[in-house]
Nucleic acid binder design. Sequence first.
DNA 1: TCATGTTTGACGTACGTATGTCATCAATGG
DNA 2: CCATTGATGACATACGTACGTCAAACATGA
Lengths: 339, 339
Amino acid sequence: MSRPTIHDVARIAGVSLSTVDRVLNDREGVRRATRARVAEAMQQLGYERNIAAANLARRRQYRLLFVLPAGGNSFMRGLEREIGARAEAWEFTAISVTTVPPFDDAALAGALQSIDPAQTDGVAVVATDSAAVRAALAALRDRGVAVVTLVSDLPSSRRQHFVGIDNVQAGRTAASLLGRFCRGRTGSIVTVAGSMLVRDHAERRLGFEQVLRQEFSDQRVLPPLEGFDDQDIVAAQLAELLARTPDVVGIYSLGAGTRGVARAMAQARPDAPSVVVHELTAHSRQALLDGTFDAVIHQDPVREISVAVSLLQSLIEGGAIDPEAARIGIEVYLRDNLP
Amino acid sequence: MSRPTIHDVARIAGVSLSTVDRVLNDREGVRRATRARVAEAMQQLGYERNIAAANLARRRQYRLLFVLPAGGNSFMRGLEREIGARAEAWEFTAISVTTVPPFDDAALAGALQSIDPAQTDGVAVVATDSAAVRAALAALRDRGVAVVTLVSDLPSSRRQHFVGIDNVQAGRTAASLLGRFCRGRTGSIVTVAGSMLVRDHAERRLGFEQVLRQEFSDQRVLPPLEGFDDQDIVAAQLAELLARTPDVVGIYSLGAGTRGVARAMAQARPDAPSVVVHELTAHSRQALLDGTFDAVIHQDPVREISVAVSLLQSLIEGGAIDPEAARIGIEVYLRDNLP
DNA sequence: TCATGTTTGACGTACGTATGTCATCAATGG
DNA sequence: CCATTGATGACATACGTACGTCAAACATGA
C-alpha cells in the first residue's frame, strides 16, 4: 500500500537492515552477490529512499555556494539580494554567496579552486568561458561537489546542469522583434555586448545574427561593441558610434549596462532606432515607458535561484532531475505589458 | 546553533512536551495563560515546526485534487497529462484529477460540492465565473479545504491564491505585438474567445482592448467571436467572418481551438492578417513555422502544476507563501525563437 | 471541604533512515 | 588446522514530531 521501506527491502532480499544500509550508502563490506540481491529487491519493490527521513536522521545540511560576478551589474546585484532574502526558505539548506571580479576568468578559476569541498556540497556559478574555469569545475566535481552553471553556461565542461534561459533563443527572439520593429526602415544594426568571454553574450549574439541574416537580410549588422557591462563605457562607445553612423535603425544590447544605452539615446533624433535590451530593472522599465526602449528580454532571477537550489539538492542526493521543471522561460516585455 | 525544537520551547516555557504539542496542534485542554506562555516561548526562540519530521511522524498525505475542464482543449489535456506524469514526484502527496464539462458553471459547482473534505486537503480548480462556483468554493474553504484557482482566476471568491499568468497583461502583450505587426495596415481586428464566462478569456480581451484603443486607435476592434474552444466552431465562425469582412488585418485568438483559426486561414489571401494566439502546442508551433501565426503567447503547464502543488502544501500547513515564487511568467514565441 | 471537571506532566511508541558497536560466522592463506 | 580477515546480523540510539494513555495536580462550584 504505502511506499516500501528499507525494512521491506531487507526482508525481500533476505538480509539485515545493516546490509541494506551499507548498500544504500555505498559503504564497504558487502559482497558483490549480496549487493546485487539487495539492488534487485529494491528494483522489485520500487523502493525510493525517503529523503526527508534520511535528512532528519543525518541532520544533513546542504551547503550551497553561489559564485557571482561583482560590479555594478544590476541583474547580478538583484540576484544576490534575492538569494539573501530567500536563504531561510529552504529546509536543511545553508546558502552563501561569493563575488568575483567580472569578466576575469583567472579570478573566477581562483575562487573556484579555493572552495573547500569539505565545507561545500554544491556550487552554482555564473561562468566565464575559459580552460582554467573548466579545469576548476572539473576539480570540484572530482572532489564530490555538485556544480551547476547559472545565467551563463559553460558547455562541454563537467557542470551537471545549466540554470538559465536558452541564450541563443534569446538572441533569436531579440532579432525577430527588432527586425519587425524596424520594418520599413533599412540600415545598420548595432549590438552592444559586455564581453564575448561570457558564453551568454556570445550565444545571444549568435542567435541574433542567425535570424537577422536569414529573415532580415537587408539590414547591416555592425561588429559588436564591448562595453564590459559598464554603463559609462557603453554610453561613450554607443554615442560615438551613433554620431559616426547616421543610418542606425536598431540596437540590441545583449549584456548589462543598459543604462548607458538609454543615456546615449537621450539626445535622440526624431526617428530614433528601435532598441531591444536584456533584463527588466527600474531603469529599463523607465526607458520602456518613455519610449526609449522598445522591448526588454527578461529572465526571472527568483525562479533561477529556486531552480538552482532544488537542482543542486537533487544532484547531491544523486536523484533524477526533470529538465522540464528546471527550464527557465524567456520573458518579453513591451511598454504595454509591464508587470 | 541549530534550529530550536519543541523540546527547547517546552523548556523555555516551563511546560511539558505534551503541552507544547497541544498548543502546536491546536488541541484542547490548555489554559489561555499557558497557551500564551508557550506562544511567547516559540516567538522568543523563533521556533519553526520541522515539517519533514512532522509529516514523517504523522504519515501525512497531502491529498490534492485538480479540477479541469474536459473536452478537446489541448492545453488542458496537456496539463492533465503532465499531472499524471509527475504525480510521483512529490513526497507525501497524492494527486488526482477530475474533469468537468467546459464552460458549464453548474457542472463545475456540482463537482466542487461533491468533493469530500474528509478525503481531500486541497483543490486546484480551473474556474468559471459564477455565483454558484463562488459558493461552492466558499463551502470547501469552510470545511477546511485549501483552494487555489488555476489558469483562470475567480477574484473576490474565497480561493486563497491564483496560479497562472496575469491574463490582462497577456491581452496587453498580444495587442502590443499585433499592433506593431500590423503597422502600416489599417482595418479590422478580430478576437476569438472561448467564452466570456471564463475569467481568463474576459481578462485577456480587456487587456487587449485597452492597449489597442490607446496605442493603435486607428484599428477597428470587432465584437468577439465565441468559439467555445472548439476548433470546428472556431473555423466556421472565423471563415464566415473573413469572407464577410475583407479589411481584417489582425486576429487575436485568446482561447483554445486555435487549430480552427489555422484552418480558417488556410485559404488565405496574399496579405493575410497577422495572427496572435495562445498556448504553444504541436499545431500552433507548426502554424508559426509556416507563417500562418505570427506570435504565440504561452504559459508553462509544468511550472503551473508544480507551483500549484507547493502552494497548496504550504496553505495546508498554514505557512507563509511567497508571491514572487508563485508567479507564472508570460512567454512569447515567434517563429524564430521556438524552443 | 468534598466532589467534579479541567489542565498538565510523564512516558511510551511510532514514522523511515543513519550510524555506531559488538558478536558471529564463513572464507582464506599459511 | 588454526589465525586472520571479511561479510553479515543484532541491537541500540538518534533525528524532530505526533499521538495516545494514565495519573497527578489544580481549579471550581456547591
